[in-house]
Computed example of a mutant assay.
Amino acid sequence: MAKPMTKTELVNALAEKMEADKKTASAALDALGDIITGAVAAGGAVTLPGVGKIYCRERPERMVRNPATGEQFKKEADKQVKVTIAKALKDSVNA
């Protein structure tokens, strides 16, 4: 498995693709992160063409068990961020 790309490496690659400086690429990456965070936190979804869809899913209140003690307790309803990977990305990885 390949080593994960760091933010610095991602900014460098983005700057090269955009034919812009690293400062502009870093600002674009930060802005994209802020937009996605805001949209998903508000209950919406963001689709990144060719990559996937990021959305928030609500989970109902449920009973869970502490594996160490075996004690069962009620866990309150919460939200979970989910990512569905686009078919185009899956196909390019498996090609």
Rank of each mutant, 00 (worst) to 15 (best):
P49K: 11
R65Q: 08
G50D: 03
T69D: 04
R57W: 10
I54G: 11
F73R: 04
K53E: 13
A42L: 03
A77T: 07
K74T: 13
V81L: 10
V64G: 03
V81A: 09
A88Y: 13
R59C: 06
E61P: 00
R62P: 00
E58A: 14
K79A: 12
R62M: 00
E61N: 02
K79N: 08
K74E: 12
T47H: 06
E71C: 03
K74Y: 02
G44R: 01
E61H: 02
K82R: 15
M63H: 07
A45F: 00
M63K: 14
Q72H: 13
L48M: 11
A68G: 10
G44Y: 00
D78Y: 13
E76P: 11
T84C: 11
A88V: 14
E58I: 09
V51P: 08
G44T: 03
G43A: 02
Q80E: 14
T69N: 06
I54L: 15
K79T: 09
V64K: 05
T47V: 12
G43R: 04
A88W: 10
A45Q: 01
P49V: 11
M63N: 10
G44H: 00
F73Q: 08
D78W: 07
Q72A: 13
N66R: 04
V83Q: 08
A88D: 11
K87M: 11
I85W: 11
A77D: 05
A88T: 15
G70K: 07
V46K: 02
G44W: 01
G43M: 03
A42P: 02
E61W: 00
Q72P: 03
P49G: 06
A45G: 01
L89F: 10
S92V: 09
E71Y: 04
V64N: 00
E76H: 14
A42D: 09
V64T: 06
M63W: 12
R57N: 14
I85K: 09
R59G: 05
E71Q: 12
D78L: 09
K53G: 06
R65G: 01
K82T: 10
V64R: 04
D91T: 12
V46R: 02
G50P: 02
E61L: 04
D91L: 11
K87C: 05
G43T: 04
G50Q: 03
K75H: 06
G70F: 03
G50T: 02
D78N: 15
F73D: 05
K79D: 10
A77Y: 09
A86L: 02
N66K: 06
D91A: 13
I85R: 07
Q80K: 15
K87D: 15
A42W: 02
C56D: 06
C56R: 13
T84V: 13
K90N: 14
N66W: 01
V83Y: 10
I54K: 07
A88R: 13
T84D: 14
V51S: 08
T84W: 12
Y55C: 05
F73K: 04
R62E: 00
